[in-house]
């Protein structure tokens, strides 16, 4: 039975990823998209969309954030572990919000 060398084991780790250089063209495209989305979100806030106003604003912000994370922060080219780390952060944030909201949503319902 042969044991893996340290190097082989490191290669199998989920932290492992090949270095990937993102080209300036991609950066430029993302940069343009971010500016366009900024204009869009300002414009959308002046439209009467009712309940959809905050939804559109959040959707655009999330899109922008995802673009930054994927390309400027190289997550698209990163290891599975790094992707999981980012996901864990947002998951825990959602836990904080949803579990807190269970209280705030139902507080006015009174006693059973």
């Amino acid at each position: 039975m042969t044991e893996p060398t340290r190097r082989e084991q490191l290669d199998q780790e989920p932290t492992h990823h090949e270095e990937h250089i993102v080209s300036p063209k991609v950066y430029g495209l993302i940069f343009g998209a971010l500016l366009i989305f900024t204009a869009l979100t300002v414009g959308a806030s002046y439209l009467e969309l009712g309940i959809f106003n905050p939804i559109v604003a959040i959707a655009i912000a999330v899109t922008k954030a995802v673009l930054v994370i994927l390309f400027f922060m190289h997550i698209k080219y990163s290891s599975r572990l790094t992707k999981l780390t980012v996901a864990a952060g947002f998951f825990t944030f959602l836990v904080l919000i949803t579990m807190t909201m269970t209280d705030y949503i139902s507080r006015a319902w009174g006693l059973w």
């Binding site: 900024t38 979100t41 300002v42 806030s45 002046y46 439209l47 009467e48 106003n53 905050p54 604003a57 959040i58 655009i60 912000a61 922008k64 954030a65 930054v68 994370i69 400027f72």
Partner: peptide, 17 residues
């Protein structure tokens, strides 16, 4: 930058219409 991307609509853009 991402934090600001969220702060901007949440603080500046509430029901501008």
């Amino acid at each position: 930058d991402i934090v600001w991307i969220f702060l901007f609509p949440l603080l500046y853009l509430i029901s501008r219409h």
